[in-house]
Simulated assay, not measured.
Amino acid sequence: MQIAGEAKFDLSKQELWEILHDPEILKNVIPGCEELNLLGADEYEVVMNLGVAAVKGKYTGHIVINNVQEPVHYTLEAEGSGGPGHVKAKMDCKIEDSSSGGVVLKWQCDAEVGGLIAGVGSRVLSGIAKYMAGKFFSDIKKQIKNKV
Rank of each mutant, 00 (worst) to 15 (best):
Q2K: 12
V64K: 15
S81F: 13
N37E: 13
K130N: 10
S138Q: 13
S122V: 11
H86F: 14
K56T: 12
P71I: 07
G85A: 08
D97R: 06
G127S: 09
K90V: 15
Q14N: 11
A129E: 01
K130M: 10
V113Y: 05
E6C: 04
D139E: 10
P23D: 07
Y131K: 13
V46F: 03
E24D: 15
S138A: 12
L16T: 00
G119W: 07
K135C: 05
A54Q: 12
G51H: 09
W17S: 00
V47F: 09
P84F: 03
V55D: 04
K147M: 11
V87L: 13
S126K: 14
G32S: 04
P71M: 02
E18Y: 08
E45N: 12
S138H: 10
H21L: 08
Q14A: 12
W107L: 02
E77T: 12
S99N: 11
Q69L: 11
N66W: 05
F136Y: 02
K141D: 01
K13S: 02
C109Y: 08
L116T: 05
S99C: 07
P23R: 10
A78V: 14
L38F: 06
P23C: 07
S12K: 01
Q2F: 09
S98R: 06
E77Y: 07
S98G: 12
L36T: 04
N67W: 07
G80D: 00
V68Q: 06
Y131L: 11
K141A: 03
H62C: 02
E24Y: 11
I128V: 15
G119E: 06
N28Q: 12
L26Y: 04
